[in-house]
Write a protein that binds this DNA or RNA. Sequence first.
DNA 1: GTTTTTTCCTATAACGTTTTCGTAAAAGCC
DNA 2: GGCTTTTACGAAAACGTTATAGGAAAAAAC
Lengths: 336, 336
Amino acid sequence: MNGISMIQLAKELGLSVSTVSKALGDSHEISASTKKRVLELAKKYKYKPNPFASNLRKKKGKQIAVIIPDIVNNFFALAVDGIESVTMSKHYDTFIYLTHENLEREKAVLEHLESGLISGLIISVSTGREGYAHFQEFYEATKLPLVFFDRVPDLLQFPKVITNNYESSFDATVRLIKAGSKRPVLITTTEPMFTSMERRRGYQDALEKHGIVLTDEMIIHCSDDMDSNYTILRKIFSQKKRPDGIFASIEKYAITSYQVCKDLKLSIPKDVKVIGMTNLRTAALLNPSLSTLSQPAFDMGKEAAGLLIKMIEKKSYAAANDIIVLPNELTIRDSI
Amino acid sequence: MNGISMIQLAKELGLSVSTVSKALGDSHEISASTKKRVLELAKKYKYKPNPFASNLRKKKGKQIAVIIPDIVNNFFALAVDGIESVTMSKHYDTFIYLTHENLEREKAVLEHLESGLISGLIISVSTGREGYAHFQEFYEATKLPLVFFDRVPDLLQFPKVITNNYESSFDATVRLIKAGSKRPVLITTTEPMFTSMERRRGYQDALEKHGIVLTDEMIIHCSDDMDSNYTILRKIFSQKKRPDGIFASIEKYAITSYQVCKDLKLSIPKDVKVIGMTNLRTAALLNPSLSTLSQPAFDMGKEAAGLLIKMIEKKSYAAANDIIVLPNELTIRDSI
DNA sequence: GTTTTTTCCTATAACGTTTTCGTAAAAGCC
DNA sequence: GGCTTTTACGAAAACGTTATAGGAAAAAAC
């Protein structure tokens, strides 16, 4: 705003604007001596190219956006940290948009971004499998590269960064069973997301392999509303024939599970064994320490951002169905 | 990018570009009927103004930046949530930059933003009191509004959103003493930040008021490195004459304190009473549940963003020394 | 019926870059 | 020395807006 422009640089140097522009861009058309003169004056005046002018002319910029459901969640916070570590080093600017699991908000953000403000997009979707059209539309309208991570639209052909949800959920469930749980339940979302489906498959197959019959009540659906989740879980665990194991497939469900057990005076792991899918730093400090299946959140963000920037810069044409799979990590503590 | 431009709209409508621009801007110079025609066609083609062109011409845009030390920290995550809730509703875009407590990185971001990419800035500083010059320089160079929150540069005249650190730290310390701690220590940062100084003052005055003599060892300095913090604390609590109370003035220090006590088999609250300054959602689920002094993080973000946007839109010229003080909340649980 | 005002629109010049094209001068070639 | 090629720069257009100034037609005022 207050800064100096190329025009003023050119004037002071007795050069044309185009020469200055090329010099700053290190073009081969400009002699070494002129480049030096230009660079020096630019430095002296702390010249910074106006990004709007530059983006307008080049029809693209070094800005990307991240759309996630929630930042107050260690997983997404870590993912953003990973993303930012890459964008920072590649000199990109990162917009952040939070959908709070709200499909309308997600749509609104996407529509807003059709203006061309950004050159690429990283998303973790906020809803179930029915709501994917807006991503496709965004892509058709803008042809911008977009990368999904964790919560990905399985039905669409886009680059994705995910984890081995099926295998690791299978393993986690097996550990619950081996620890003595006869009837472990799965706590999952109402929204049919890809990640949840995969985790559920892993859970189911583990039960089946160990000869445990899956009944409807064993899959507990929770929402984004902590209070109603508490009510649901409390009711279930107040029953006489209550579950003796929990695989909480979402961070906040693990917390609520603990709360319910605490309030109902159910002993973990004696009465109920718990494994939570979470990246909580305090997992080891909970009472008792929580066994976790944690996601490589930071690395997922890093991979996603790396992939996106590669696509933007067309250094490598990432295949539309490029899928990076990272492993989850199972940490057994005192809760099973 | 792929979208339609004003020029094409104008052509199809048989109008001039300026007319279309004014119609879209709801100018009084344009008749209602023309406005209607323009709006309709714009809607039909999903016209979105090119933000670069618009920003370039207007010399400002609807983008702001948030610079914070760390997103993997409930406090800052909540603050960003609060900020985003405002920017979203006011149709601003929010850049995010993480400094990881690194002064050089903070300076680099600020310098980068001097390009004029944004119209305003929200910051929580990453360092001590000696490193404030770059903020002043940024302001001189850009004259952009900036708002600080929580970790504010007390020596500079800028709008700030803070909490009653002194009073609430005083209260927290008093609670520790009343709970029976004869020699409560303060765990604080090595960096002399404003917030820490205030908390320390509160701690000191509480001791003094209760006739407890403050010695140097009672103020424990920790850094951003979890491992070295662990070592420091473990050493102190292994001593024979170890402290019997902790006021952890930073979230991560509370966690490390718990870890150390657990590993040293010190009972909380019998051997050591703890109050942590934190926004951890899991505080109540820790072993034992942690008494916390928590900050109104979300609201701080909201206030900061509200203030910033007001300044940007000049609806009210926020005074340079506008300071909003929100109260911290003390929640006593089983750790004291 | 003339003048003044209002209404509604257009032409044009910005905003600060990048890029394409053109062209002198210098260098290379025989 | 005449020719081509290369080097190093400049002029001008373009990117898609917004703001300023101006002007024709319609309405209002006398």
